[in-house]
């Protein structure tokens, strides 16, 4: 990790930075993509180290300039140093991956054993006709590299089960449950509990979705699904999954990932947000 006080790095960043003005008239110091890349090349360091060193000086990588002031430069550093696992990179997970890469979460582990199928095209942002048959985890990691090269994306093309989930998920601050069946969700929840990791879990069916955040020791998904799930799928097996429903729920998931990373807190802990876009119902229920 680049030390913020490293005089060589700081000197070069200051020389390359420029003053910019936001739409509200307030100013900030900006470091462009090309300039950050040039400094990284000269010093033989990863671009993300240059960007973190700039942020420590209050200089904002221009690609993150619209994250401010909702996020502070210090928040942006926290995100850059964070590791998040996205379990399932289909409908929810594809959108989550895209958003977390753009906002600047430093390390994303993208876990999915499946390959893209034609029926994914209606809602999965990472699915295009030319990637049918390819591993979702690989396509997702390539997308992250394209969107934001400062983010380390690790493709993990496997299905989590009781033998591997704990070790695969260890080391992450947050796990995002974007799975498509109930038993796998419970496997991931248990692994998070065992690892002491917060879980941001969403599920969709048709116009409807649900979202909750589970911290280790919480009752968790049992409060929603009951303690014994007889079925492997929910009502989505009949209702299908719609692009706008997964988009909305994925956005809500990302907001909670950021809440947990920055504040170690979520307004959806011990609560579930339920949504029906058919009549614009959104309700937060105390569990």
């Amino acid at each position: 990790m680049a030390a913020p006080e490293d005089p060589d790095i700081v000197d070069q960043i200051r020389k390359a930075a420029s003053k910019r003005v936001r739409a509200d008239g307030s100013g900030y110091e900006s470091l462009g993509l090309v300039e950050a890349g040039a400094i990284a090349a000269r010093l033989g360091r990863p671009v993300r180290h240059i960007e973190t060193a700039a942020l420590a000086q209050g200089i904002v990588p221009e690609k993150y300039s619209r994250n401010l002031t909702a996020l502070s430069p210090d928040d942006q550093i926290v995100l850059a140093r964070a590791a998040v696992a996205v379990v399932g990179v289909g409908g929810l997970g594809g959108n989550v991956t895209e958003m977390l890469a753009r906002i600047g979460v430093g390390r994303l582990t993208l876990i999915d054993a499946d390959r893209f199928e034609e029926s994914n095209l209606n809602r999965q942002v990472l699915c295009t006709p030319d990637c049918l048959g390819r591993l979702k985890a690989e396509v997702a990691s390539e997308r992250v590299a394209t969107v934001n090269a400062s983010v380390t994306a690790i493709a993990c093309a496997l299905r989590l089960d009781d033998t591997n989930a704990r070790s695969v998920l260890a080391g992450h601050q947050v796990v995002v449950d974007c799975l498509d069946n109930l038993p796998d969700r419970l496997v991931v929840e248990k692994a998070c509990r065992d690892n002491g990791i917060a879980l941001v879990s969403a599920a969709v069916a048709g116009y409807c979705g649900q979202l909750t955040v589970v911290f280790p020791g919480d009752r968790g998904l049992g409060a929603i699904y009951g303690d014994a799930t007889g079925s492997t799928t929910g009502v989505e097996a009949h209702l299908g999954n719609l692009a706008f429903t997964v988009g909305v729920m994925a956005g809500l998931q990302c907001a909670e990932v950021i809440n947990v990373l920055l504040h170690a807190h979520s307004p959806l802990r011990h609560r579930v947000l339920v949504m029906d876009l058919g009549d614009a119902t959104v309700e937060v229920v105390v569990l």
Partner: peptide, 10 residues
Amino acid sequence: IGFFPPVGGG
């Protein structure tokens, strides 16, 4: 009163 069925899709 709200009734919410099991939803598991992603």
